[in-house]
Simulated assay, not measured.
Amino acid sequence: MHQSRRRDRRPARRRPSEPVRRQVCPLPVADADVVLVGCFSAKQKDFETVMASAAAGLAARGARVVARIVQRRGVSDGGVRKTGLPFSSRTLLRYGKVREVAQVCDRAGADAVIFVTALTERQRRTLTELLGRPAVSLSDAFAADHRRHH
């Protein structure tokens, strides 16, 4: 006779977790060539203003914005159906857009990628690995620059 399998209900063994240390921009913003990336829903009509403001803030801190890339969601018919779904929890961007960002970074010789949207620690690590250069959020880059000057 067939015996039913019993599931082991014990929690999986995990390594003791280390205290979470939030890393900030690993390089100074000043004198860096950066690619600026923004993720916006179709409902957000002022995305160009947000991107321009972010670029101006980076330029004021001495960074050179060598490219701007925008991921819009809910603009196409397929995107409208997905508007209610969260962006990728792993990369924030769609896979094709990550490839596009990587190609732009390589062509422009960018030192870092700065996202207008806040990144989780996991997204920061994953994007840094996939893009081959530091990926940080705008707020982290500004905070690191502020600490460097004070």
Rank of each mutant, 00 (worst) to 15 (best):
R15G: 07
L85C: 05
F87E: 13
R10S: 12
A63C: 11
A102Y: 03
T120N: 12
R125K: 09
R94Q: 12
R7E: 15
G96F: 13
R148K: 14
R94N: 09
R125D: 09
E100I: 01
T91M: 04
A32C: 12
A144L: 05
A32R: 11
L58I: 06
R5A: 15
S76H: 11
A112N: 04
F47E: 02
R73H: 12
S4C: 09
T49G: 14
A54R: 07
R7D: 14
S53N: 14
L93H: 09
G57D: 10
P11L: 12
D77H: 14
A56T: 04
Q71N: 05
H146A: 12
H150A: 15
L92G: 05
T49S: 15
V98H: 02
H150P: 00
A52F: 01
R99Q: 14
A67Y: 03
R125Q: 11
A144D: 08
R21C: 00
R68Q: 08
S137A: 10
R14V: 15
E18A: 15
D145V: 02
A52I: 00
A118K: 10
A56Y: 01
R61V: 04
G84V: 02
A54C: 14
L93Y: 11
P28F: 13
K82M: 08
Q71T: 06
Q23P: 00
V34G: 09
Q3V: 15
D106P: 13
G84L: 05
V50Y: 12
D77S: 10
R147K: 12
V24A: 02
F115T: 00
D46L: 10
T126S: 10
V66E: 00
S76Y: 10
R10K: 13
V20G: 00
A118M: 07
R13C: 01
P134F: 01
V113D: 01
A144T: 01
R94K: 11
K43M: 07
D8E: 13
A52S: 15
V75L: 08
S53V: 00
V101E: 04
G132Y: 01
V20F: 03
G84W: 04
Q44C: 11
L127W: 05
S88T: 03
A56H: 11
L85G: 04
A52K: 13
L131C: 03
R124W: 04
T83R: 09
A59S: 15
P134I: 00
S139W: 06
V116C: 10
G62W: 07
